[in-house]
Design a protein around this nucleic acid. Structure first.
Lengths: 268, 268
DNA sequence: TTGTCGTAGTATGGATACATTCAACAAGCT
DNA sequence: AGCTTGTTGAATGTATCCATACTACGACAA
């Protein structure tokens, strides 16, 4: 019992950091809780498949259950948690097939966005992209990295003229981000995004697309290897998480909290 | 239940029909209200830009405000309504630019789905598609039509193997459906879907894609003409008949960076 | 020993009541 | 007259409380 306690303690401590970090400056408490929980899920503080108890979350954040419910409902529509009526909400688990489909769709959407963007390329945008890419190739961790990455791809994909397209891409990226938390540091990623920008600025569509394919495929394979490792490690087979009831009742809170802790971004 | 106001009687009557029709058979009241409101919005019972008052909706359905709020929040994440904090929710309004983007994305996604589907075509699926297409070409209205259409496209696009792709397509279709309510009857639509099925079953990709492009472009132009008519009639821009503002303050993003603001995109 | 039934516990879903916030209106000031 | 400011009203957002549904556990019978 003690190890579990200490375990939750560290998790609660990290969660408290997230709370403190984002607790101020929102119009409503529900929006704040939404940001907190989204950050906690996408950063891996809550592991895939973990149950999210409304009451404990409310207590940890310091609000009532209502805004927690509000946030969880929005996260459900975002595809990050699933509700089981009268049983609760748990963090979405993605099967390898689902992850593959996400990357197929990302390839389709992002190459389309790339083509659209390059037809409207101009020196100003190219220069902005160079600056963002340089920052992106320097930082590899933390919220600063995530923020710059969002801004880079919004500029690259011309979110001004393709807001819905960019939103869909970001949603897909958000689904899979938590599965490759410790992966980003492997490999020699020097100048990657800057290379892409040069292809784009030079009007070399095929090279740019090749970069994109290679990039996405590399990340996809990284997730696949991670999933294979973890699959052999502990998780037997978390099947489809459709809200269809009648699941095997012998499915208690997965012991994966520890794994999540070890995978969280150490460098924050 | 009891008609509250006399001036919107016909609207309330139609809404009451929707309520009665969908009121039974759900796990939770919130899910029922979600289905009711989604149906009411996509069927045009609630006009784009119209305010959705939680209390009146709750009274009309016969529940409290909580499940109504629940449903509205889910609909916001679906992109069908937008929340203005402390002011309320209104049915999303789509600008012509947004509708064009939706159709560009539908073309991209649906042609991709078509290609994927045709690589796995077999006589069984072709036969199922023929039957569904025949039914679809007979019925042109009502919930039966909508239901058969969903089943046809799920079979056509192989939702078994591409669940996320089909879900995204259906979401996009749901966004624009309410804009072409009276449009579907114009033109000679005889055998349209059956023609498509023959192309697909025969392995004629280019003809199938040509059918798809023509179909989507026809519907898009229909919506465009409708919007132009209505635009000259009453609405100068996204503000509907409601006389008050549409963008009260500059809608300050939360200070946590740009990422938490991904929710209010589809509103425009 | 096994399978079924019944009961208790717990967490969610929903309803009611309260607090907060925004917007409109009116009065006062420059 | 125009602008600013205080007040009022209404609708939302939140908290607390209650009912319901699901799970777990234990007793009893075959």
């Amino acid at each position: 019992m003690a190890p579990r306690q200490g375990h939750n303690l560290s998790k609660n401590a990290r969660f408290a950091e997230v709370v403190d970090e984002l607790a101020g400056g929102y119009r409503t408490i529900g929006q704040m809780v939404y940001a907190v929980l989204k950050e906690a899920i996408t950063s891996g503080t809550f592991a895939p498949g973990e149950w999210l108890r409304q009451e404990s979350l409310a207590e940890a954040i310091g609000v009532s259950r209502i805004p927690v419910r509000t946030a969880l409902l929005q996260l459900e529509s975002d595809g990050l948690v699933t509700f089981h009526p009268h049983r609760g909400a748990r963090v979405c688990t993605l099967s390898p097939a689902q992850i593959n489909e996400i990357y197929r769709l990302r390839t389709l959407l992002e190459s389309y966005a790339l083509r659209l963007s390059m037809t409207r390329m101009n020196p100003d945008r190219a220069e902005a992209l160079r600056k963002l890419a340089a920052r992106l190739d320097e930082e590899h961790e933390g919220k600063e990295f995530l923020d710059v990455r969002v801004r880079f791809y919004r500029e690259l994909y011309d979110s001004e003229n393709n807001p819905l397209l960019v939103q869909m891409i970001e949603e897909l990226r958000g689904h899979v981000g938590r599965y490759l938390l410790g992966f980003r540091f492997s490999g020699s990623h020097k100048r990657q995004h800057s290379d892409l920008v040069e292809h784009v600025a030079g009007g070399d569509l095929s090279s740019a697309e090749a970069w994109l394919y290679s990039h996405l495929e590399g990340v996809r394979q990284g997730i696949e290897s991670i999933l294979l490792d973890e699959g052999g490690d502990a998780a037997p087979d978390e099947n489809a998480e459709v809200e269809d009831d009648g699941e095997p009742p012998a499915d208690p809170s997965p012991p994966g909290g520890g794994q999540a802790a070890s995978r969280a971004q150490a460098a924050g």
